[in-house]
């Protein structure tokens, strides 16, 4: 379900530290800084800028915009497409964006470095609890001889990023299957390149998402598991967040934003085709492809702190963070 770019690679932690320093500096600059970027338009409408990573699971977010839900909540939101949540958070630190898409590992990383990023709303609901609705898959290449996760020992596994939920999941699954996670060669690779890498034998397994997974499965790759449904059922693995100082200065905007997103997610739950239709314009997809887009969600917009704690615990275990801030502090409360 999560699209993150490999280009940031292992720099996530470093970038998070830079963002933390910038937020700290802005907070020290006084309350005027924290409200930067938000402006009131005509008729009391609040102008906002939101950074997002374009992919199919943004359908509810796109609907909040196209269906006029943001507008009816007094928000005029400008959308900025970006390659990764780290780029989104860096832009938020600059004050040019107020809200943005983040994945839970990046959210945790930021908070453990002292940057007070907080989830305000869900993107399109939490992870599904069953494999059927989850379109993130760990696949083994045809002819790789891999039948189970234990067979991944010593093999090359492609992941979109090396410090992501996907790479974390592979380590947790490996340990659970009784093999040393360090024995797996984790290789960063963009989703579009994974099907070819699998069929050419450059990697023997990959964590891949729809619609990219279709090509791999058509080439004969087999599904080993659905890591997110398996490890984080009903979990909050992504959210739309804002920075602590901004939220403190603009509680009304945050509350309107959350209400708008919750309304959009509830509408999309009942009207999926109307929601998916927004992908045609926002992702330039042909309408037929947009209608068939696979969304990984249970449509429940209530943020799940227990799943954030779980992910955080795994991140600590695998040395990605040193401190573990409480999950409740990473979710905005009015």
């Amino acid at each position: 379900m999560i699209i993150r770019r490999p280009r940031w690679g292992r720099r996530v932690a470093g970038a998070c530290a830079a963002i933390a320093i910038a937020i700290f500096a802005a907070a020290c600059g006084g309350p005027a800084e924290s409200g930067s970027g938000t402006s009131k338009g005509p008729g009391g409408v609040t102008n906002l800028t939101l950074g997002y990573v374009p992919y199919t699971d943004d359908a509810a977010l796109f609907y909040a915009q196209d269906g006029g839900i943001f507008r009816s909540h007094g928000l005029n939101v400008k959308f900025v497409p970006q390659a990764s949540p780290v780029a989104v958070e860096a832009s938020m630190a600059s004050g040019t964006e107020q809200f943005g898409f983040v994945t839970t590992p990046v959210l945790v990383n930021l908070n453990s470095k002292g940057a007070p990023a907080k989830c305000v709303s869900s993107v399109d609901g939490n992870q599904p609890a069953t494999a059927a609705g989850d379109h993130t898959v760990l696949v083994a290449a045809k002819g790789s001889g891999i039948k189970s996760i234990a067979d991944l020992k010593g093999k090359n596994v492609a992941e979109v990023q090396l410090t992501s939920l996907n790479s974390l999941a592979v380590q947790v699954l490996a340990k659970r299957a009784g093999i040393d996670p360090a024995s797996i060669h984790q290789i960063a690779m963009p989703f579009p390149q994974m099907p070819a890498a699998l069929s050419q034998g450059r990697v023997q397994a990959a964590v891949i998402v729809a619609p990219f997974a279709d090509a791999a499965l058509a080439d004969g790759a087999t599904v080993l598991t659905h890591p997110n449904a398996d490890l984080f059922p009903n979990g909050t693995v992504t959210c739309l967040d804002a920075m602590g100082p901004y939220l403190k200065a603009n509680p009304k905007v945050a509350s309107d934003f959350r209400a708008a997103m919750n309304a959009a997610i509830a509408y999309c739950h009942g009207h999926q085709s109307a929601c998916k239709a927004t992908l045609a314009s926002h992702l330039s997809l042909p309408p037929a492809k947009a209608a068939k887009a696979a969304l990984s969600t249970n449509w429940n917009p209530a943020l799940n702190p227990a799943s954030i704690t779980l992910i955080e615990g795994y991140m600590k275990q695998y040395g990605e963070i040193t401190s573990e801030p409480a999950a409740a502090s990473m979710i905005w409360k009015p």
Binding site: V53, A83, A87, P192, F212, L285, K289
Partner: peptide, 22 residues
Amino acid sequence: LIGGGSGLGTRILVAENAGPSQ
């Protein structure tokens, strides 16, 4: 492409993320 400034790079990013059909 990586940062997100408007232009050809962003168009490449959006098309890539939209999937194989794009």
